[in-house]
Structures are given as structure tokens and as C-alpha cells.
Write a protein that binds this DNA or RNA. Structure first.
Length: 427
RNA sequence: GCGAGCGUAGCCAAGUGGUUAAGGCAGUGGUUUGUGGUACCACCAUCCGGGGGUUCGAGUCCCCUCGUUCGCCCCA
């Protein structure tokens, strides 16, 4: 095709689909606002080193999926592959900890990863996330998870699984890593190729290998939960208890490890069976080391991110797209009438009515046809006769009932019209 | 980055080497230039994602390329 198309892995969100996005954002905003979380908007690109240090140089995201470029000032910049590092950077940059207490933040926006596109996986995609900075309280973990499930539930999503695990603190993990490597090394030849490679690079990630043989070997492997310090263990127990108190079902999955380096203690993942290979809708956990790693003060933190494309894929399976409603469709003909129609439209819009003005200038018959297709509740008709007398024909499109009314009178009965429209739209 | 499938109009889709590329929905115009939803009529792909090749002849076969889907990897 010679015409220009959207780039690989990017997608237009067209008007017919945008209702899903608005709904997700509205519900999330509402729930998070009531939990006293505040929105933060950080730049789409950051210095490359932020992600190298924050996300981890050895991770796949950083080592092979970043959109990195040199700007004209020869700086190395990167389109953000995730949201947490930028928020943490901003927190340090603006010394938000100086405002005291806990910072509860949320964000929504586009993220970029150079990956092979697939259903539920794009190169530009959108995440909605929360970050709670400055609290080590295990209630912060539970609250964050509860907000995620609340959003998903309010959207009407069911059949989601919450997996929970603790990967302890760095010393727990260090001990566990040694034990795991010690166990797996004798089996090295039997592991899948990727896992063999990870044995030296990132042994914990072998745990979520999908290779059946590797999984069989892992059946007898030591579990991370046996290596948690008493403190870490207590934290994990408390988080589980709090979730259970909130009525949130979860299953402990000791093989759950996350792909980004900054996680500590609590990690979790919410998955759906209705998404194919990209099953994770929401994931996150605690990241007590990140802020210090980026040069800030020691700051405990917890957060998560949701993949909005995946969320909307699920929504589309359970509910039809919502058509955009129209209250009044205005048809007009003749110079005077046409200008009065515009004035009338403006007034009705100020009164809160969704008002579509036919701009085609075509015959009344055509305009009515479009009025009908717009699915408007009522039609307002202005021709030469109405223009002369400052009246308008009000036609209820469902019943066909039509009355003449003065334009000023119409604008004075907005409350009555609102009720009438509300009633008719419900049918 | 690897493996496999697919790609015909805005959407769905027939077409399995041979004259002008079915059909449906949507759209546009008309019957009906002051009254819609029904009905009827007409129009709506010089072209089959793009490029090259085989052939007397290609949407149909081959190669390359782009996009997409599914899986691996990875992740939201």
C-alpha cells in the first residue's frame, strides 16, 4: 500500500471504541480519588539511564525492548517502557517526600516497548498504575491490591485470578538464589535452553519457565517461601490476612517472580483465561529499593500497573460498545433559518443537551434521514416559516408527534425537556 | 529475535490459472427539493497489502517485502 499507515505495533483508537477507554479511566479515577490517590503526569521520555538503573540492565525490557534515541543535543533518551521509574524519578526530583507522609499517586498513559506485536501486546500500549511511596506498612500492599481488584470488579470483569507471592528482601533472595542454583545445576543439561542461560544470569526467572520438563524439575526445587526471614515471613502473612479480611481471594504461587529488578517482598499478578498468551491484566508489588537506587532517600514503596488494551479486550467480550447519544438533531433550510438553528444549538448545548446540527445544507428529506440515523430523541425543524415567526417545530422521533413552539419558550422549558428525553431514552 | 497461519471495497465475504472481480451490511443519489424510519431503483474495487518473477494469460503459482494473527521469548 502506498498510503501511510499506523506504524507497526501501534493502533488508532477510533470513536466507536473510545467509550471503553473513557469508561475505564472514569471508573479508575473515581475509585482512586476516593482512596485519596492523586494523579501524576510525568514525561513520555526520560534519560536512558533512568530505566537502565531503575528497571535493571539485565532485564529483557531494558536490554532489548527500549525505544532509545539520541536527541539533537546528543543526549540518550528513551521512550518510557513502564511508569514506575518515571514516577520515582519525579518523586526524588521534586523532593515529594519533603511534603511529609505517604505519597499516593496514580497515572495513566502510553508506554513503549519494542516487541513483536501480538493480541494484547503492542509497541505503544497504555498502562494505568498506582504508586504508594513512603510507606512500609503492609496495609499499603493490601490497599493497593484491593484498589486494583475494586477497579476490575466495578468494570464488571469476572473470572480473574489473583496470584500472590513474596520474594523477600535482597538477603532472603540471595540465599534462595544460591539454593536454587545448587539444586538446578545437576539438572542443567535437562533444562530448556533459555533456562540454562538464565541459570547464571537470572536464576529466579527459571521459575516461570513454561517448558514442561523444566517445570517437572522445578517440582522438587526449594521454594522461596522457605527462605524468607522471620520479618519477611510476617509481612507476607499479614498481607494475606488483610486480603482475606477484605474478602479478596488469592492463591499463593511461590513460582511467581517478576521481570523487573526493583521488586521486593510482595509481588502479585492478576490474570485472565480469556486473553490467550498475554494473560496478565495487572501486576505489581513492593519495591523498597528503587528510590534509593535512583539516588533518593531509602523509601519503601508499592505499586502496580494495568494494561489497558488487555483490559478493554476483556470488556469488549462482555459488553457491547456504547453508542454516543444525541438529544436534539436540528434540521434547517434557508439562510435565516440556518443561522437561527446555530444559535438555538448553542443555547441548547449550554443547557446541557447533546445537540447535533445538520450542516449538509441538503433537502429536508435528507436531513431527516440523517436525524433518524443519529438516533436522536427529538428533532428540531427550522424553515422559512419558523424563521419568520421565531418558532421551531419540535418532533419526537420515536412517536412522530410534532408541535410548533416559540424558540424562547423552548429554551424556557429545558427542565421539562430533560425529563422527557430521559424517559424516552430509557425505553 | 525465532516458528506457523493469514492479507480481496469502510466492514463481512465469494473466488481453487482463462473474457468486463459474486453477494451482504454500511455509504451516496433518486422515486419524495417542508418531514425520517419501510419499499423499490441506481451508483459505490481500472483492481485483489506492496514489489518482482513464472506463464500466451495470475487475485489464484513462486520469491522478496510490509502488515496482522497465533505460539515461543518477554510482559501490562
Amino acid at each position: 500500500m502506498s498510503s501511510i499507515q499506523a506504524s507497526r505495533g501501534t493502533r488508532d483508537i477510533l470513536p466507536d471504541e473510545v467509550g471503553y477507554w473513557q469508561r475505564v479511566e472514569a471508573i479508575a479515577r473515581d475509585i482512586l480519588t476516593r482512596a485519596a490517590y492523586r494523579e501524576i503526569r510525568t514525561p513520555i521520555f526520560e534519560q536512558t539511564t533512568l530505566f537502565e538503573r531503575g528497571v535493571g540492565e539485565a532485564t529483557d525490557v531494558v536490554s532489548k525492548e527500549m525505544y532509545t534515541f539520541q536527541d539533537r543535543g546528543d543526549r540518550s533518551l528513551t521512550l518510557r517502557p513502564e511508569g514506575t521509574a518515571g514516577v520515582a524519578r519525579s518523586y526524588i526530583d521534586h523532593n515529594l517526600s519533603a511534603q511529609g507522609g505517604v505519597q499516593r499517586l496514580w497515572y495513566v498513559g502510553a508506554m513503549f516497548r519494542y516487541e513483536r506485536p501480538q493480541a494484547g501486546r503492542q509497541r505503544q500500549f497504555h498502562q494505568l498504575g498506582v504508586e504508594v511511596l513512603g510507606s512500609a506498612d503492609f496495609r499499603a500492599d493490601a490497599e493497593a491490591i484491593a484498589l486494583a481488584t475494586e477497579i476490575l470488579q466495578t468494570l464488571g470483569l469476572k473470572d480473574l485470578r489473583l496470584d500472590l507471592n513474596s520474594i523477600g528482601d535482597s538477603s532472603d533472595r540471595q540465599k534462595y538464589r544460591e539454593a536454587l542454583v545448587a539444586y538446578l545445576t545437576p539438572f542443567k543439561e535437562e533444562l530448556d535452553a533459555d533456562s540454562q542461560d538464565r541459570l547464571t544470569r537470572n536464576p529466579l526467572r527459571i521459575l516461570d519457565s513454561k517448558d514442561p520438563r523444566t517445570q517437572t524439575i522445578l517440582d522438587q526445587a526449594p521454594g522461596i517461601l522457605d527462605y524468607l526471614s522471620p520479618d519477611s515471613q510476617r509481612r507476607f502473612d499479614r498481607v494475606q490476612q488483610l486480603l482475606s479480611d477484605l474478602g479478596i481471594a488469592c492463591n499463593v504461587n511461590s513460582r511467581l517472580v517478576r521481570g523487573l529488578d526493583y521488586y521486593t517482598h510482595t509481588v502479585f499478578e492478576i490474570q485472565s483465561d480469556d486473553l490467550g498468551a498475554q494473560a496478565t491484566v495487572c501486576a505489581g508489588g513492593r519495591y523498597d529499593g528503587l528510590v534509593a537506587e535512583l539516588g533518593g532517600a531509602e523509601t519503601p514503596a508499592v505499586g502496580w500497573a494495568m494494561g489497558l488494551e488487555r483490559l478493554i479486550l476483556l470488556l469488549q467480550q462482555i459488553q457491547p460498545a456504547t453508542p454516543s447519544p444525541v438529544d436534539f438533531y436540528i434540521v434547517s433550510r434557508g439562510e435565516k433559518a440556518e443561522s437561527q438553528a446555530l444559535t438555538l444549538a448553542q443555547s441548547l448545548r449550554r443547557s446541557g443537551f447533546i445537540t447535533e446540527l445538520d450542516l449538509s445544507g441538503s433537502a429536508f428529506g435528507k436531513q431527516f434521514k440523517r436525524a433518524d440515523r443519529s438516533d436522536a430523541v427529538a428533532c428540531l425543524i427550522l424553515g422559512d416559516t419558523e424563521a419568520e415567526t421565531k418558532t421551531v417545530q419540535l418532533k419526537w422521533l420515536r412517536s412522530g408527534e410534532q408541535t410548533a413552539i416559540e424558540q424562547t419558550a423552548l429554551l424556557e422549558m429545558v427542565d421539562k425537556l430533560r425529563q422527557q428525553i430521559f424517559r424516552l431514552r430509557d425505553d
